[in-house]
Design a protein around this nucleic acid. Structure first.
Length: 423
DNA sequence: TCTGGGGTCCTAGGACCC
DNA sequence: TCTGGGGTCCTAGGACCC
């Protein structure tokens, strides 16, 4: 049977989450900022209507923010993740199979569903449920490939008449829509490739669908060839129900203030190592490779730039924070150059092994490994319980370098004291 | 003064081997 | 003077996504 996909995508997700608990902001333009309150990462529909672009640095938007009374929020990932979980849980009840694609969108496998109910009615009932049970509005696009489902969702968002649901299983309808969509709006076609396509005279999604897949492959890559086939209703990107295991883990941050002292940088690196190790244990994996990078701001003029990274192999795969801290500090010693104003640093883990599959060397006792496992699981348990926070002293107690979050909303859904009160 | 963070996949080219 | 062919592995860089 030919597969059918639905893409459910939340409207202006982060901005909608912030508005959910602030009815006074219902029709007010709202933006959500990146870490350090640096760039705009989400916009409410009022802000989009003002023509304000995604990703722009906030300091360049100061005039517009004042002029239109735009309300700014620092990103509050605990809130967004919690609302995302509620939505995904409801979606799981609706479809036999669900692929959670990102924090605010998921693919549903609707293959065969039309023997029970037509696709559009199905989409409408899903939308109604999320809209009313969670209060976050979603759009639904339905089509025989993921790329077309993305396109259908794009149309559901753009055209009011669709009321948020588009069934794009009909070929004629697919072609009519594709003729209206710019090639750069197709999933998988970014800025670089769309520039090249336009120069070749391929301007719309339909032009791309009608291009010869073989010659597209020669000029670009198999990835773009796949997109051409997907636009023609041939599903090349399959359904992935289980989240694939991670191949690398990165923890990096820009600093709230520039770092000049090595001791402060050491604290930051230790903090990132600790977080990365927690994620690694969450993935139930061991790592054999650690890398550390530090850099000055690429934007600052009139000061020397410095950027460096270094990686190392561990003798044995590990998930013990202490092992990782030890090598990370050595790496930092080797790349640290005094006299720079550092803006960002990070830690990357890669080369993962499943727990229990690696042949360990004979110098590390079995007893030692067991102790390490127990210690790490106690640390993780305490930190997840909300009862307290234990950490390694190396990361510092009161970091001066932590990020700026001057417009943070309360933890409405994850902290008792921040619960919304209705009077 | 102030420009995010975390991922994946593909390709080309070099090193090395027989 | 003549200077192959085929394969693998690794890495860096580019491109994309949310």
């Amino acid at each position: 049977m030919k597969p059918i996909f639905a893409l459910v995508d939340c409207n202006n997700f982060y901005a909608s989450c912030e508005k959910l608990f602030r009815p006074d902001l219902t029709h007010v333009p709202v933006v959500v900022l990146s870490n350090n309150d640096g760039c705009v990462v989400a916009r409410s529909k009022e802000v989009k209507a003002l023509g304000i672009k995604m990703g722009g640095p906030v300091f360049k938007l100061k005039d517009e923010i004042a002029k239109y009374g735009i309300v700014c929020f620092s990103s509050n990932y605990a809130l967004y993740a919690d609302l995302s979980n509620r939505i995904m849980t409801l979606l799981e009840e609706e479809a036999p199979r669900l692929e959670i694609y990102s924090i605010d969108e998921a693919f549903m496998d609707l293959t065969g569903v039309d023997s029970v109910v037509d696709f559009e009615s199905f989409g409408r009932s899903v939308k109604h449920k999320i809209d009313t049970w969670v209060g976050i509005h979603v759009c639904v696009g339905i089509a025989p490939s993921k790329t077309l489902a993305k396109l259908a969702n794009h149309a559901a968002k753009k055209y009011k008449g669709t009321k948020g649901v588009v069934d794009l299983t009909n070929r004629e309808r697919q072609r009519r829509l594709m003729a209206l969509v710019e090639v750069g709006d197709v999933w998988g076609i970014g800025r670089r490739i769309s520039e090249k396509l336009i120069a070749m005279g391929i301007k719309t999604a339909l032009d791309l669908a009608d291009a010869d897949p073989k010659s597209i492959r020669l000029k670009f890559s198999v990835v773009v060839e796949r997109t051409v086939r997907e636009l023609n209703g041939v599903s090349c990107i399959g359904f992935e129900e289980a989240a694939p295991t991670k191949k690398q883990i990165i923890c990096s941050r820009s600093f709230g203030e520039r770092i000049l002292e090595k001791q402060l940088m050491r604290e930051a690196i230790c903090k990132y190592v600790t977080r990365a190790a927690e994620k690694l244990r969450g993935e139930k994996r061991l790592t054999k490779s650690v890398s550390v990078f530090i850099r000055t701001s690429p934007f600052s003029k009139g000061e020397p730039h410095y950027s460096n990274s270094m990686a190392t192999e561990l003798p044995n795969p590990t998930d013990d924070t202490r092992d990782l801290l030890e090598v990370a500090e050595v790496l930092l010693d080797r790349i640290w150059r005094p006299g720079h104003r550092y803006a960002k640093a990070g830690v990357m883990l890669m080369d993962f092994y499943e727990q229990g599959t690696y042949q360990c060397d004979m110098f590390r006792s079995h007893e030692g490994k067991k102790k390490s496992k127990e210690l790490m699981s106690v640390v993780d348990k305490i930190n997840h319980s909300g009862l307290g926070n234990v950490f390694f002293a190396a990361q510092g107690v009161t970091p001066q370098w932590s990020m700026k979050r001057e417009h943070l909303s309360p933890a409405y859904t994850t902290r008792w004291s921040d619960l919304k009160v209705v009077r």
